[in-house]
Amino acid sequence: MSDDTRNQMPRNLMPLWEVFIRPRTGLAHSHVGSVHASDEVMAVQAARDVYTRRGEGVSIWVVPSASITASDPDQRDENFEPSASKAYRHPSFYDIPDDVGHM
């Protein structure tokens, strides 16, 4: 594929949906992949037929891929590095003698 064909989308593009599956009750939905579908009802059915053929789930969410707002990768350092230096948020930061027992 040449670079300049990348943004020439063919007509009648099927919308893309991100699929989230709850593997069993008690667990959160997690992202498993995506499907193409004309609308949300067909997207749920497609997700069921594609991603739960081996009993992988008990509940499905679909979200239009275009609706997802992601953090900017250029801001990764400013977003996520500041928390790395705050070890006092973690239990291992504090010294408690073993004699005290589990805490």
């Binding site: 594929m1 990348r6 989308m9 063919p10 593009l13 099927m14 893309l16 193409h36």
Partner: peptide, 10 residues
């Protein structure tokens, strides 16, 4: 592949 900016249709 679609995460790299090419559509399935293409």
């Amino acid at each position: 592949a679609e995460t790299l900016g090419v559509s399935r249709e293409q």
